[in-house]
């Protein structure tokens, strides 16, 4: 399946999709979106890349092994939960930080960190599965 047209279009499409997935992830708090959906879009981006460019290219592109990305995601999610213990709250309560220079910026918080963790887990796990299937020819 070495269609030249596909090979030229893929990098552009994948790049745009990953950008779009991160966009959906980060604005998820107020508008439909969020870690899980962002992760799915990211996963489909890498799936496209794997199908078109092959597994080796995807591994190079993802630098780390997808399952370890999922692991890091889970770790970040856990960390963001544990962070609230430092402030004396129960596990997983959201900690918010309102910077002095932008008082009404209601975004920097452990909750968003947790969402990023979810994003990484979804991307890592699904891409791992797709790569696993691709590789086992």
């Amino acid at each position: 399946m070495n269609s030249l047209i596909l090979k030229t279009a893929t990098p552009f499409l994948v790049g745009l999709t990953v950008l779009f997935s991160i966009y959906v992830l980060l604005r998820g708090h107020n508008v439909p979106g969020g870690g899980f959906i962002g992760g799915l879009i990211g996963a489909s981006a890498f799936a496209t890349y794997t199908i078109n460019e092959g597994v080796a290219a995807t591994r190079r592109a993802m630098v780390f092994h997808p399952v370890s990305i999922a692991g890091v995601g889970l770790f970040i999610a856990g960390l963001s939960g544990v962070a609230s213990l430092l402030f004396g709250d129960a596990f997983m309560t959201g900690q918010w930080w309102f910077p002095s220079f932008a008082p009404d910026l209601k975004y920097l918080s452990t909750v968003v960190l947790f969402d990023i963790g979810v994003y990484l887990v979804v991307v890592g796990a699904i891409v791992a599965i797709i790569i696993g299937l691709e590789e086992s020819t």
Binding site: G28, G35, W96
Partner: peptide, 15 residues
């Protein structure tokens, strides 16, 4: 501090 209730539930209330 989030208007998307579905996502707020997912990542904050029911984290």
């Amino acid at each position: 501090y989030g208007r998307n209730i579905v996502n707020v539930i997912l990542v904050d209330f029911r984290a």
